[in-house]
Design a protein around this nucleic acid. Sequence first.
DNA 1: CGCTATATTGATTGGTGTCAACGGGAGTGG
DNA 2: CCACTCCCGTTGACACCAATCAATATAGCG
Lengths: 218, 218
Amino acid sequence: MAELDSIKYYRTFEAGQTVVWSGDQMDFVASVVDGIATLSQTMEDGRTQMVGLLLPSDFVGRPGREEAAYDVTATTKLTMCCFRKGPFEKLMVTTPHIAQRLLEMTLDELDAAREWMLLLGRKTAREKIASLLSIIARRNANINAPGGGLPGVTFDLPLTREAMADYLGLTLETVSRQISALKKDGVIHLEGKRTVTIPDFDRLLDETGDDADGGILA
Amino acid sequence: MAELDSIKYYRTFEAGQTVVWSGDQMDFVASVVDGIATLSQTMEDGRTQMVGLLLPSDFVGRPGREEAAYDVTATTKLTMCCFRKGPFEKLMVTTPHIAQRLLEMTLDELDAAREWMLLLGRKTAREKIASLLSIIARRNANINAPGGGLPGVTFDLPLTREAMADYLGLTLETVSRQISALKKDGVIHLEGKRTVTIPDFDRLLDETGDDADGGILA
DNA sequence: CGCTATATTGATTGGTGTCAACGGGAGTGG
DNA sequence: CCACTCCCGTTGACACCAATCAATATAGCG
C-alpha cells in the first residue's frame, strides 16, 4: 500500500465537468476521494443511460484496457486519486492482495448493476423514483447517522432531474411528475427543489416494489 | 490448475430445471461446461428480470458469499463443473493467478451488464429484439464459423419467447409481435419458431440502434 | 386423440414520451 | 437597483408505444 502511495496523484474537477469521454485514451485508474461522478453511455441520436454512480471510495478504470468505455462526469465538485496505469498494473501482479480487493469491489458493482437491471426492465416510473430516493437516503444515513436516526431522514439530491432521468431510464418530465406525485401523497416532503425529507422510511420502501425488508440483495 | 482439478465435480440439469433459488445456501462455485443457463431476479408480484445469460466457460457464484443472489435456471440441457467453496477460496489465496483471471471475467460481465442497462433503459422494443438477435448471432458465428461467413447466418434461438421477454424487459406478446414485424420487413427469416436466418447482418445491426460499426463496447 | 405448453394475433387500455408553456432563482451587466 | 438571461424545474395537452386481456393456431406428447 505504501508503494501505491508513491505513484498516486490527485486531480479535481468542477461540477458538470467531464472527466473522460468514452473512447478516449485513459492512461490511469483512479478512485473517488470526494464528490460524486457518473458513468454513462450515449447512443448516436443522443439517448443517454447512466450505468454507474461513483461515490467516494469507488474505483474507475479497467486494468488492461486502453480506452475509456464510458463517459465519466463530475456532478459535484470532485476529487480523484489517480494512479498511472503502467505502474498500477505492475503492482497488481506483485501484490496479490490488490487484485483480490479489486475483485471484491467489482463483484459489488456487478451486483449493483444487476439490481439496476431489474429496476430498468421491470419497475414503474413511481417505483423507480422511490428506489432511487431510498438508495440515496440509505447512503446518506450511513454517512450522517451511522446506526439509526431512521424516522425523518433529510438529505439533498446530488443530481438534477435530468441526471435522475438518465439514471432511471425515464424522461426528466416523468421524473418531475412522479416526484410531485410522491410529494402530494405525503411519501416525501420537499424544501426547495433539492432537499428531501422522508417522514416514514417504511412507507417509501413500500413504494419501491422491493421486498418488505427492503433488501438490496434479493 | 491441477489443484483445481482435484476438487472439481460435475452436475447436469435438464432443460427448465432450476439450479439454485435466490436466497438458497450455495456451498459451491461453478462454471458452465455445456448448455445455457440464465440468472434472474423476481419481484414479490412475479415480475421477472433476467440479469445474465450463462454460456459455456461462464462462471457462477461469488467467493465469500453464502447465499445465492439470483435464481439460476437451465434453459437447455446443462452441464456444470463445480468446486466446493471452501477449498476454492483457499486456492484463491494461495494462487494469485486465479483471482486475477476471475477479476478479468467479472469485469467482462460488468461491461455486459452495463451494455444491457442501456438496452433496458433506452431502447425501443424493436431495437431490443434486434440487439438480442445480433448478440446471439454473433456468438453462434464465433462458435460455428470463426472468422467469417457473415452473409446468411442461421441459428436456433436458445430461449422461449417468455425468456426473451424477461431478458429484454418486455412482455412475451411484444416479443412475438416485434419478431413478426422484423420478419415481415425482411430483416430476418423464420423456419419454424426457433430457427432464424439473417440475410443481411448489417441491416440487422442498423435496427439495433447501436453505432454503425456495431461495437458492443461503445 | 385430447392435453398442455408455446406462440401468434387482435382489440383495447394506460403509462410514459413528446411538445410546449410557464415559473423561479442565480448570475450578469447596465 | 433593476432588467435581462440562462438554467433548472414544473405543469398541461396530447400522442403513441407497449401492456393487458382475450381468442386462436401449432406442436409435442402421453
